[in-house]
């Protein structure tokens, strides 16, 4: 069966573009222009995934409100924010609400399709845990489950966005070796990425690790080049 995806976007052109691109992938698309109609429609039929814009018409926080309402009904519903609000504070509040990912505009359709596919795959995996095809990769205390897109540090699960997952995965692929900004930019598979974006991501990732482990220092700056995964010192317990 095809997944049902709801798109809430007040701009008709963008709404049409998203819908067209996703329909091509065989998803069943329902698109809404405002919070009221989306809310009304989804009360009866819950989609498998929701793509939300935050500003809808005159309501500047409509997306957040809708997200809260939907997650109240179905806490496991994957929500993807796709918005022009690129400020850090918005990103953080979106993710705190329980959204699975937060993508700033402009976004490439290819990226959107791929991102939605991985979210759905993740949702399926979480709904029906199946024996994984590939065992999780471990580097020191870091364990990366590519299929479930989950990362654990010292056995604890990190709450990461997909972009953050990809960045860590790219870093940990060759521990100890510097990874250039350019490689990291590609890893995000976002359309317009600057060094600053990478730096911001890295700072957020560090914060998340540090929340679990105060002594975390495995992400090292390679100034002028990029970042690298610093292997833990041998004497620390494996």
């Amino acid at each position: 069966m095809s997944y049902k995806i709801a798109i809430v976007e007040d701009d008709p052109d963008q709404r049409h573009n998203y819908a067209t691109a996703l329909e091509k992938q065989g998803y069943e698309i329902s698109a809404y222009a405002d919070r009221a109609s989306a809310r009304e429609a989804m009360r009866t039929a819950m989609p498998d995934l929701v793509v939300l814009d935050i500003i809808l018409g005159n309501e500047i926080d409509a997306g957040f409100q809708l997200c809260r309402e939907l997650l109240a009904i179905d806490p496991s519903l994957p929500v993807l924010f796709l918005t022009e609000r690129v400020d850090e504070i918005d990103k953080i509040s979106g993710l705190r609400l329980g959204a699975w990912d937060y993508q700033p505009k402009p976004v490439s359709l290819g990226f959107l399709v791929e991102r939605i596919a991985s979210l759905l795959r993740l949702k399926a995996l979480r709904d029906n845990p199946a024996p994984t095809a590939h065992p999780a990769r471990t580097t020191g205390h870091l364990s990366i489950d590519e299929d479930a897109m989950q990362i654990r540090w010292r056995e604890q699960l990190l709450e990461l966005t997909i972009t953050e997952f990809r960045l860590i995965a790219a870093l940990a692929r060759r521990p100890g070796y510097p990874v250039a900004y350019e490689a990291l930019m590609q890893a995000t598979i976002q359309q317009y990425v600057t060094r600053n974006t990478i730096n911001t991501h890295m700072r957020n990732i560090r914060r998340k690790f540090c929340a679990l482990d105060n002594a975390f220092a495995c992400i090292g700056n390679e100034y002028g080049h990029g970042y690298r995964w610093v292997q833990e010192s041998p004497e620390s317990p494996q």
Binding site: D13, Q14, N17, T20, A21, E84, R85, V86, K105, P106
Partner: peptide, 18 residues
């Protein structure tokens, strides 16, 4: 300005992809 420009930018960019 960035907020406001990002929307039409996204429209143009996605349309170009199509």
């Amino acid at each position: 300005l960035r907020h406001e420009i990002n929307n039409p930018l996204n429209t143009a960019s996605t349309s170009l992809e199509h």
